[in-house]
């Protein structure tokens, strides 16, 4: 450490002691962080990567199309139908692969939309702290008071269950949670002097939201994104299981569980048949667990909690 003096011994502000972090490129930083990741996080990232890979290349990986009907219904596991066929004679293995694309795609789109709505309204409420905050917050309270799955079922039966409606309805319902979180963490930042300084400068609402506040609340929001994705994913699966989610012939894990659920009772005769409905259920569970592992690690990284040395 150097002392704040110039060569001729005078005081110099530029030479005051400070700790400057080494500048690293994004890739270097990423690698440094990844090296310290625990095995659970590695496992989670690997699983997520695999799922994304499958979702992206579904048409190349799947032996058949998701809607292609073969003459033999409930075919057993074989070389042609790896996991057999379902009640209509569609290849379960192909539908499982396409299901990754459909379910994950819709869940990601829904989560993004939920964050766009909830995040921007939450920020606006936190900055304005006036009637707008009151109106939005009380409206969100009302929405949250209604059990969301039942509310979603109701809305879907009113508006019809298209993929678009599904995305919009779940996004709005989940945006309430995002709104609450964003508002709460933004309130801590809004009181900072630099936000006041920006207001004094005459900056507009959007600039304050995007440049002053958003960068400072990203860590909790990113973590929430992961968790929210899991909930959305589960909600979609649940709705599909109930028959109001993603509609056939589009393949989806939730509806696959429902369609093949009856096969479980044949476990004593053919174990593989009983496994057929379990596999999409396991796929849902595995992804949820994987995302949670990664979110846990990320939260630990950004929380500032340090392992004691």
């Amino acid at each position: 450490m150097n002392t704040p003096t110039t060569p001729n011994g005078g005081y110099s502000a530029a030479n005051e002691v400070t700790m400057v972090k080494a500048r690293r490129t994004f890739v270097q930083n990423l690698w440094r962080t990844l090296k310290t990741a625990p095995p659970t996080a590695w496992f989670g990232m690997l699983v997520i990567f695999l799922y994304l890979f499958v979702a992206f290349f579904a048409p190349l990986l799947a032996p058949h199309d998701q809607a292609e009907v073969f003459p033999m219904a409930y075919a057993p596991w074989s070389d042609e139908f790896r996991l057999g066929t379902d009640a209509l004679g569609r290849d379960v293995f192909s539908r499982l692969i396409y299901g990754a694309r459909n379910t994950i795609g819709i869940a990601v789109a829904t989560t993004f939309l939920a964050f766009l709505i909830g995040g921007s309204l939450g920020l606006m409420a936190a900055i304005s702290r006036n009637w707008l905050d009151q109106v939005l917050s009380r409206f969100v309270d009302v929405l949250m008071a209604i059990p969301s799955l039942i509310f979603a079922l109701m809305l879907l039966s009113i508006f019809g269950s298209s993929a678009f409606n599904l995305i919009c309805i779940i996004a709005v319902l989940d945006a309430t949670r995002v709104f609450r979180l964003t508002r709460a963490v933004a309130l801590n930042v809004v009181v900072m002097d630099y936000v006041e300084a920006a207001k004094l400068r005459g900056e507009g609402l959007v600039w304050i939201m995007r440049r002053e506040i958003l960068p400072n609340i990203m860590p909790p929001l990113v973590a929430e994104f992961g968790l929210r994705f899991c909930f959305v994913f589960l909600t979609i699966a649940a709705l599909s299981f109930l028959g109001l989610g993603i509609q056939p012939p589009t393949a989806d894990w939730g509806s696959m569980v429902r369609e093949n659920a009856g096969l479980i009772q044949f476990a004593e005769y053919d174990l593989t048949a009983a496994l057929t409905p379990m596999i999409p259920a396991a796929a849902i569970a595995l992804l949820t667990v994987a995302v949670n592992f990664v979110v846990d690690w990320f939260l630990h990284q950004t929380s500032g909690l340090r392992d004691e040395h």
């Binding site: 900072m192 002097d193 630099y194 300084a197 440049r211 002053e212 960068p215 400072n216």
Partner: peptide
Amino acid sequence: MADTAMNPRH
């Protein structure tokens, strides 16, 4: 407080 008067991310 100069600490809180500057955005830590800028």
